[in-house]
Design a binder for these strands. Structure first.
Lengths: 80, 80
DNA sequence: AATTATTGTAAAGTATGCTTTACAATAATA
DNA sequence: TATTATTGTAAAGCATACTTTACAATAATT
């Protein structure tokens, strides 16, 4: 089980912004953004939430668990 | 803006399990769990997702952003 | 084609998320 | 009350998430 992400897609396709702009918006360096996009860094939950908030979506939409065959692991969200 | 969490409530009230049991379930040490509950550590997104999955809920249910007056910051999740 | 914008990599340094170990304090159980 | 379970704290060490700086490569614009 590993962590994967769809950050680049969100940034380019849904946000239409540069790494620099996203970095400034969530309070990190551009190199941090690319390191996350390239899977070199795992972001803190704090940063993941700020990124999710920026894109008006949930953490699970951008960052997700994958199994040994790179399949997205999903679970039902119950209660609230 | 800071990170807060409701982990203890989830663990005790909804899970009815000890810190040790949760720690084992998500693959960290018990001290890590209490450090998160007490706000001493900010978990990685990877760990936050594993914890959310364990409780069949979303990251945002357990971990959330708060403002200067400790109010929960919410945003609407759009698209999917 | 030249210039600008964006992306990508690397390195070194700092801060912190984690680990283990140990003990104390508190709560629950017998 | 004694014992066990759980929670809490502390310290030291390791790994890595970050920072800055620098340069290269690629893409977009003029």
């Amino acid at each position: 089980m590993k962590l994967a992400n769809d950050l680049r897609n969100f940034r380019e396709k849904r946000g239409g912004i540069s790494q620099e702009a996203l970095a400034n918006a969530v309070g990190v360096s551009r190199q941090t953004i690319i390191s996350i996009e390239k899977g070199r860094f795992i972001p803190s939950a704090f940063l993941a939430l700020k990124i999710a908030k920026f894109f008006d979506t949930s953490v699970e939409d951008i960052f997700y668990l994958i199994d040994g065959q790179n399949n997205k692991i999903r679970w039902r969200v119950k209660w609230k």
